[in-house]
Amino acid sequence: MSQLSTFVVGKYLFGVDVSLVQEVVRLQSITPVPLAAPAIAGLINLRGEVLTAIDLRVRMGMTRSTSERDPVNVVIRVDDEPVSLLVDEIGGVLEVSQVPFEQTPSTVDERVREMLLGAYTLPDRLLLALNAHRVHALAEDARAA
């Protein structure tokens, strides 16, 4: 993966393989699902298709967004099932083949570390590469727990 689609969650810049991203939409209406895992923000209607939205802030152990603005849905396709990731801001697509890549330091909280492939050290900040499959799967684990 040499191109990452980037987005901001909290103070961090995350990236996910651009080939996984189906689309980015701003939707106001999310139907919460009682009894679901906390990281499940709810259900969204994407042109007639019902998608599960995962709140990436909660997933990453941050507090829920208090922003007035509608969250941005990054719809990614994992294992052929589209799922939406709620992020704060969408960034651009970055070419990272020339950027140095580091493993995630072991000091990072394990639950978060699991979801990261590693970090690209951009000149001005870190770009955390998300493991989309783990993000997806973790939501499942959390529900089971």
């Binding site: 699902v33 998608l51 599960t52 499942e140």
Partner: peptide
Amino acid sequence: KPLGRHLKGIPV
């Protein structure tokens, strides 16, 4: 519409 796999386990 079927629910995604994260929610399939909630039988309600």
